[in-house]
Design a protein around this nucleic acid. Structure first.
Ligand code: MN
Ligand code: MN
Ligand code: MN
Ligand code: MN
Lengths: 228, 228
DNA sequence: GGACCATTTTAGGTGTACCTAAATATTTAG
DNA sequence: CTAAATATTTAGGTACACCTAAAATGGTCC
């Protein structure tokens, strides 16, 4: 009755860990099976299956109690941050060195992040001059896994007109990303925000003439901070 | 009785096609199951299984008759050349742009070749100035799949002392590759060859003091052409 | 022309990562 | 507090890419 050891160095495991990390938020709260199923686009039953496997490993990658959600273990968090570092370095590299359009870097990085070696990671990091942020304004985790906390808030939380600085933009919706880019809404840019009726947001980047109207849900993809 | 269609866009299929292409040689001769099993490091039974699948596809990737070996179909050759182009562009890129040591480019390219997009391929090709040869001296197939025939011969075929130009060096043995590189034996270099007793080769690159002794089998990894 | 031997194929499994349907537990609402 | 709704897990599949062992084939050698 030898305990058969499973192989957890797979693209799939990477993606589960990244999803748990992302959904857990800065407080690393427990994540539900449904939320994961939704994010990863797989059936809830598949989630349960994988979580049981990740939790039962010799070095568990998650803490998991049946029906009580899941959170990353220390090893799981280390691995998630490693992949996130690959992802963001790749995005920066594709954008800066290979001249990709901003809305195309994410999909390419999403695949390659699982297959580049530590040497590749080191070489592009060096070539880019050890960047701290990716082209969407997201912080790149350091080699030791350290990552500074976000001080920004979602544009969708704003309740009054005002001026802000664009902190970062989610890379998950490439159509929206391109639309924002066309209107000059990129990380670091100064932004005038007007609340229209019915929870829509009207944005204008500094130095631009054309404004852009965003739905509440699209506004959730943009993070801002106060001018300063 | 619906014919279930299989997915042939996998890393595994890529590698089978590449192996058939490489083993078939310039004449694209039929390749035996054993030769493939040997090259790919899988059991002969696995080879049979995959070949049947590749041959039975709606657009067959190989021509296969039981017990008579395989060769690539037009579609299979196209795909093999596409992957070979990825591989060699990646090697050139890793070497030229990222400063990899020559003996490390192959392993990295071997993984990444299956996962880069057409955009990535195009961007590194452009960045490198549409190179025709990779850092081992191998021809990079064109976008349309055209590739010029080799005019070189293996060093191991030489039977008398002489001077030659290094054409290319196999990338499959990284230890040998590094050893050759240390002795200045790289594509384009002028090479003095002395036949020692017992089928060993003594090489000296032009402008170098130290010679290098190579076994017959290692000499098979070096291709040369006449000076001119 | 038959026996032998190497090659190749068939038959029957494995582990990974999914799936659907059914069962069960938890939460919410009346 | 219970019933309905929702969330989660269990049970029983599938496809892929491997594997080993056994059977079949085909060429060689006497
Ligand atoms: Mn991204
Ligand atoms: Mn991914
Ligand atoms: Mn190579
Ligand atoms: Mn490969």
């Amino acid at each position: 009755m030898t305990t058969r050891r499973v192989n957890l160095n797979t693209e799939s495991v990477d993606n589960y860990l990244k999803a748990i990390f992302a959904l857990g938020g800065p407080e690393e709260e427990r994540v539900s099976s449904t939320a994961l199923a939704d994010r990863l686009g797989v059936a809830p039953a598949s989630i349960t299956n994988m979580l049981q496997k990740l939790a039962a490993a010799p070095v568990p990658l998650v803490e998991y109690e049946s029906r009580r959600g899941v959170r990353l273990s220390t090893a799981g968090r280390r691995r998630a941050l490693e992949i996130l570092r690959h992802h963001r370095l790749l995005e920066t590299f594709l954008y800066e060195v290979l001249g990709y359009p901003i809305e195309e870097v994410h999909a390419e990085a999403e695949r390659l992040e699982h297959f580049i070696s530590e040497r590749f990671e080191e070489r592009i990091d060096a070539k880019l001059g050890r960047p701290k942020f990716d082209p969407h304004g997201h912080c790149i985790p350091a080699l030791n896994g350290k990552m500074s906390k976000q001080t920004s808030r979602p544009l969708s939380d704003i309740e009054e007109d005002g001026e802000f600085v664009v902190d970062s933009i989610s890379d998950r919706d490439s159509v929206l990303l391109k639309r924002l880019n066309v209107h000059g809404i990129t990380p670091g840019v100064r932004l005038r925000v007007l609340m229209s009726s019915r929870g829509e947001f009207v944005l204008r980047a500094s130095g631009r003439f054309k404004s852009l109207q965003l739905s509440l849900s699209d506004a959730g993809a943009v993070r801002i901070r106060s001018i300063g």
